[in-house]
Amino acid sequence: MAAATSEAPISVVLVDDHALFREGLREILESDGDIAVVGEAGDSEGAVSAVARTRPDVVLLDVEIPGDEVTETVARMRTSSPDSRIIILSMYDGPQLLTRLLVAGIRGYLLKSVHRHELLAAVHSVHEDASRIVLAVSTHSLAHVESPRSGVLSDKEVEVLQLAAQALSNAQIARRLGVAEATVKRHMRNIFVKLNAVSRIDAVNKAVAASLIQPQSRAEGD
């Protein structure tokens, strides 16, 4: 295995709800010599907290941990630690889920049937090249990965962004939906992460281009 690109080891957070599986992963990773496990978690809240606290180079995330839906967990991790590369570990090989996770910004998707050398190679690969995506799935899934036209945003995020497309402020959107302004801000942060957007206008334009929302003219004042 190639050495890490810097003197510091590759820092990794492990997320799986089975302690025995995490223990096995830790042994495999730390046997490499260039990888250090800096945190562990067994559910989505613990995972987001561990990633925010340690800001690891790589996160190994089980797709079925208790708590938030996995794309929401990925979005929250990327908000708190944008430079962390997230690799999904899964028993399932489905193109729809893979598509949603790729759009959410994961850098790898490995089936749990992979060999240890494949796991170690994936960790090194995504760490060494921020643009690289590592997939260890069936050719069927790869052939059926779809363009991000639907299922990228939650229903509530679509609703929020549709109102943002009308040039409504966060406060105005909150009043329209009957929620707290902080809730709208949280939805907008998740939208930015999922769409890789740098502004509200950028998010709206990308969502319109992907047919996630309809283009709107500016709304009348509340």
Rank of each mutant, 00 (worst) to 15 (best):
S31M: 13
M91F: 03
G46Y: 10
G67V: 10
R218A: 15
N190W: 03
A209K: 15
S199E: 05
D32F: 02
S80R: 13
A8N: 13
A167K: 13
Q214D: 06
S150D: 08
S11A: 08
R22F: 01
P56K: 11
D222K: 09
V13K: 11
L60W: 08
A36C: 09
H124R: 14
L195R: 10
R78L: 15
H124P: 05
D93H: 05
A121E: 15
E23S: 15
R132I: 00
L120H: 04
L110G: 09
E72M: 01
Q216M: 13
G94T: 09
D17G: 11
L212Q: 14
S113N: 02
S131Q: 05
H18C: 00
A197N: 02
A3F: 12
R55N: 12
P82K: 12
V38T: 14
K185D: 12
I87D: 06
A219Y: 00
E23F: 07
R26M: 04
D93A: 03
T73M: 05
V70D: 04
A121D: 12
L177S: 06
H117E: 14
I191Y: 06
K194G: 08
S169I: 00
R218P: 06
L135F: 06
S90I: 02
D68T: 09
D222H: 07
V160S: 07
P82M: 06
G39A: 12
K206L: 08
N170R: 14
G178H: 00
R22T: 01
P66K: 13
R200M: 04
A143L: 15
K112I: 01
S141T: 15
H117D: 13
P9T: 01
R22M: 04
L177R: 11
E7K: 10
A75L: 03
A19Q: 10
Q216R: 12
V114Q: 03
N196Q: 15
F192R: 13
G33L: 11
G42H: 09
H144Q: 09
H140G: 12
R78S: 11
S44K: 07
R53N: 10
A219F: 00
S141V: 15
Q214T: 11
A143V: 03
A47Y: 04
L101I: 00
D57Y: 01
A36V: 14
D34G: 07
L135H: 13
G108N: 06
V58F: 02
A121F: 08
L61I: 11
E40M: 09
A130N: 09
E40N: 05
L14E: 08
D32T: 01
D17V: 00
L89I: 01
D43F: 04
A174G: 07
H115K: 15
I28A: 05
A121S: 14
R22W: 02
T71N: 05
L212C: 05
I10C: 09
A122I: 07
R189L: 08
Q216E: 12
D43E: 09
A19R: 06
I173C: 09
Y109Q: 12
H18L: 03
V37D: 14
T5R: 15
T139R: 13
G67R: 08
E146Q: 10
S84P: 03
G33I: 14
A167G: 01
E159T: 07
